[in-house]
Amino acid sequence: MENRELVVSRILTAVVAEARRLVAEGVATAEDVDAAMTNGALFKKPPFAYTREIGEDEMNRRLSEYAEKYGPRFNP
């Protein structure tokens, strides 16, 4: 993978990992997290929409790979 693509993927995936934790902690619903990132940070690919775009399985695979390579912050 080209560095540019890897950087984009790592940054958006880091947001997905943190967003999943936030939902698991009961801070907000997945739907509300996406609405907040769309209307408050103007993200065109908020974390749960991004996950649907690349596919849940691919996201889980990516999270595991990144967790191993870059650290536990990516733990799925």
């Binding site: 936030l22 801070v27 907000a28 509300d32 997290v33 408050g40």
Partner: peptide
């Protein structure tokens, strides 16, 4: 959007997670 009283609420927490990863990518020389 409703959320619980948790540090950074939603947007600031997720923006910081993104920012931190961007900083790591730069420092690794990517």
């Amino acid at each position: 959007v409703k959320c619980a009283d948790s540090a950074g609420f939603i947007v600031n927490r997720l923006l910081c997670a993104a920012m931190l990863e961007a900083i790591r990518c730069e420092s690794e020389g990517l």
